[in-house]
Design a protein around this nucleic acid. Structure first.
Lengths: 203, 203
DNA sequence: ATAATCTACTAAACGGTGTTTAGCAAAAAT
DNA sequence: ATTTTTGCTAAACACCGTTTAGTAGATTAT
């Protein structure tokens, strides 16, 4: 019975169509401007149709967040595997920042905005994010095995490192660096990351 | 001519009334629920009246942000002045986190939300925030004078430290720690801050 | 082939939002 | 006493997310 398969495929295609239009408007004009009505207009369907494919606006953006995490993970895959763990950690930080600067809208959705998180109840819903998070944990563990961060809990060390790169990214994405209008914001981030990496080598 | 003075005073009192009601609703129910209509209702005036005292909702929340920065600065004043700069720096980090945990709504408004920043054009509008920021810079400079962070740009070091504590705070305030449901989030922050302080002592 | 059912979709409405406009009563100035 | 100014609001405008009731067309059953 090929009909139900076609139906399934069409449902998938419709979801993708909505997702694609929503992501485009969101990245170009922001969350508030990406209204259900505007998204519906872009794909030439009525607003009510969107609710046949997504429970509400939060679930729609939870789906976009998943795609963002996928892209994020791909960035992580470019981290050189054949190097000292401490070098890989440095590389990971650079790639993290690179993603945030090149995809501020996605970064916002993943780590700052509230909307997509309201569709997350159990840990399972965070799977896509955990994949990237595990990369960090693995590398930190390797660093500890090689004698770095002596005596400190790898879980806490990983959280400290995440917090640092998130802090850099979040201040950038949410425009808290315009207090230094004479400074180049991207350079500031790179330099601060450099300082941090110098510190970590000594630990 | 006492009339214009009374008028001025009454205008000030009305602004305070609006601000107080708005802050209360915002802190208890969040930004979206703090609608102009709801604020107007709380003070028993019509919604249009609020626009006689504030240009728009963004300016209203910019005013609340200013008050938040004032409170933030008071937290900073509790940092012990008669100690080694590196100890004061440690203390400053603790107080920063303490503020974020005790006043998540205010923290959000100061360092994460977009709304109040849309009323900021020139550096002058950020004065209230700069005051606190200068405290950090001063302490970092004293640390450098005492031989810490050798050779590194104090401005960048300060930004790195700010990014770190902001990262911890922002992940907490925006609920990105529920991925570790078995962990106590406040403890995690404290431990990560402890790890960071240990690092800094060695630099 | 026809009748019954089910599917995909939408028009319209509900109850909200920020903001602006026109007008009015009371206070102040003349 | 009359004019002007001030402080305020009712009502409207143009949006928003979401739900409901209903319909045209595809699918299934007879």
């Amino acid at each position: 019975m090929g009909i139900s398969e076609r139906k399934e495929r069409e449902k998938q295609e419709m979801q993708d169509l909505i997702l694609k239009a929503a992501a485009k408007i969101f990245l170009n004009e922001g969350f508030d401007k990406a209204s259900i009505r505007k998204i519906a207009d872009a794909i030439e369907y009525s607003p009510a149709t969107i609710y046949l494919y997504f429970k509400d606006k939060n679930e729609l953006f939870y789906a976009i967040q998943k795609q963002a995490f996928h892209k994020f993970f791909n960035y992580f895959q470019t981290v050189s595997p054949n190097q000292e763990p401490i070098e890989r950690l440095r590389n990971l930080g650079e790639v993290y920042i690179k993603f945030a600067i090149e995809n501020p809208g996605y970064y916002d959705l993943m780590f700052i905005m509230r909307a997509p998180m309201e569709s997350i109840e159990n840990t399972h819903d965070w799977d896509e994010g955990s994949k990237s998070h595990n990369v960090l944990h693995e590398i930190v563990n390797q660093c500890v095995e090689k004698g770095h961060f002596n005596g400190q809990d790898p879980f806490i060390v990983a959280h400290a490192i995440w917090s640092f790169v998130h802090g850099l990214s979040a201040l950038y994405v949410r425009d808290r660096m315009k207090m230094f209008p004479e400074k180049n914001r991207e350079n500031m981030i790179t330099e601060a990351l450099g300082v941090f990496n110098d510190w970590m080598k000594k630990l």
